[in-house]
Simulated assay, not measured.
Amino acid sequence: MKVTKDMTIGELLMADRGAGMILMQNGMHCVGCPSAAGETLEEASMVHGMDCDKLVTELNAYLEAK
């Protein structure tokens, strides 16, 4: 699986629940919020003032290491 900016948080967590820890470590603590599940990683990154490219890179590194 390859993580992209247009992937929703819900899709990511359905594919790998452990990815939630990466999101939380990057300051996205609303992972369990029902409305967050429908947001793309890019949308959520903008709301939280995060660098989406950095987040996607970290998520893909996590998944590749598994």
Rank of each mutant, 00 (worst) to 15 (best):
M50T: 11
A37C: 13
M50D: 02
T40L: 00
K2V: 05
D16I: 08
G27W: 05
Y62E: 11
M1H: 10
L12T: 09
A44D: 03
A37L: 14
G38L: 03
A36F: 03
M28V: 09
Y62K: 12
D53Q: 06
R17V: 12
E43M: 14
Y62T: 11
I9K: 00
M1C: 00
T8S: 03
N60C: 01
E11F: 00
E43Q: 15
D6F: 06
G27I: 06
K66V: 02
Q25V: 02
K54A: 12
T8H: 11
S45R: 12
G38H: 15
E64C: 01
L23H: 08
M46C: 00
M28D: 04
N60S: 10
C33K: 05
M21E: 14
V3N: 08
M24V: 11
L59F: 13
S35K: 10
E42I: 03
M7N: 12
C30Y: 06
K66S: 00
Y62P: 11
V47L: 14
I9T: 07
G20M: 05
A15F: 08
K54C: 12
S35T: 15
E64A: 15
E43H: 08
E11H: 01
G18A: 13
V3W: 11
G27Y: 01
R17C: 02
L55S: 02
E11C: 07
G38K: 10
S35L: 06
